[in-house]
Design a protein around this nucleic acid. Structure first.
Lengths: 177, 177
DNA sequence: TAAGGCATGTAAGACGTTACATGATTAC
DNA sequence: GTAATCATGTAACGTCTTACATGCCTTA
């Protein structure tokens, strides 16, 4: 009945619950922490309340689990939750627009740096992108090898390669300005 | 003295002030509204307080301007502001990591959609990306044609093209799964 | 048995969004 | 002259982050 669309964080968490099966908030949190994406911090203060909200909305149910340790709550996705996930998924229109690159924003103001610092900037940026590549590969190795996961990783790799090529081209083009 | 780093929104606003020269909050706001990036809404409730914060920190100064109309405040960047902008710019390391694509997140869960809906998803996503292309071009046409602006737009175009090619490849690869 | 990390949260604060309010200008 | 839009904000609300608190478990 609550038809306000899921945020991307909510949807991602719900998606983890869906694909992992019943699991604790901590498990979901770790998915975010392990992810090479810096979009979400995966902080406890975000994840725990988020799961409570999803439960209030009827998208997950929780059950106490005690494995001899401290009691915890395991969350499982409901039918409504699956439906909400599909709705979010389908909605490619208004919300989904652009791949934001923090380097692009910085490029706009690169004229503020003296030439030497500019060279250093390009070096740093390139190193940063290359280290991302390693993180993507490491992350991919830990995920289930479904075709969809593979394609998602492909997206990350392709975008990263595009960034790298852009950076090289920009460096050449701006050389001597 | 306040060495907490600028957020990307703060830096972008400060950058606009820097490149536009003294201007009102509204003018800056419009830059965000016109931008094809959906990362920031450019809402008044974000921009006006943000400029107050920047002024408190000594990165901009404001002066009353009345052009016969209602009084407004024009903001100009200070020397400290320029320095802060350069520092933010140089700091490519920890903060700047990844180009997030909302389509990638969705790809992970695409298995939840039945084949027909999946085809529609690819169509929608492709249309969305293509419409972005138009927005990027339109935006670029309104900006000053400095080499740096040009390279920033190049980044947007290249990433978008990479997304498009990825989408086509993924569609083919997933065809029949 | 003490130290350190893992697991489960909570509390306070900062920031951005949506919605509202209002004065000035322009269009018709 | 009135409606629409531009311009300048403010207020309430929700969400994310940082920091804290605490119990359990391993390991040295």
């Amino acid at each position: 009945m609550d038809s306000t669309p899921l945020t991307d964080l909510e949807a991602a968490a719900l998606g983890f619950v869906s694909s992992l099966g019943p699991c604790t908030a901590y498990r979901i949190r770790k998915c975010f922490l392990d992810s090479p994406s810096a979009r979400f911090s995966g902080s406890a203060g975000a994840i725990y309340p988020l799961l409570s909200r999803l439960e209030e909305r009827g998208y997950v149910t929780s059950s106490e689990v005690k494995t001899g340790k401290r009691p915890a709550r395991a969350y499982a996705i409901t039918r409504d939750g699956k439906q909400a996930l599909r709705t979010w998924l389908r909605d490619v229109g208004p919300a989904v627009t652009f791949a934001d690159d923090p380097l692009r924003t910085r490029m706009l103001y690169l004229s503020e740096l003296p030439p030497a610092a500019r060279t250093a900037w390009f070096d740093d940026a390139e190193a940063s992108i290359r280290s991302q590549e390693a993180r993507i590969d490491a992350f991919a190795a830990r995920l289930p090898a479904t075709p969809f996961v593979h394609q998602a990783n492909e997206n990350a790799r392709r975008l990263n390669r595009a960034r790298l090529r852009w950076l090289e081209a920009a460096r050449t083009a701006l050389d001597g300005t």
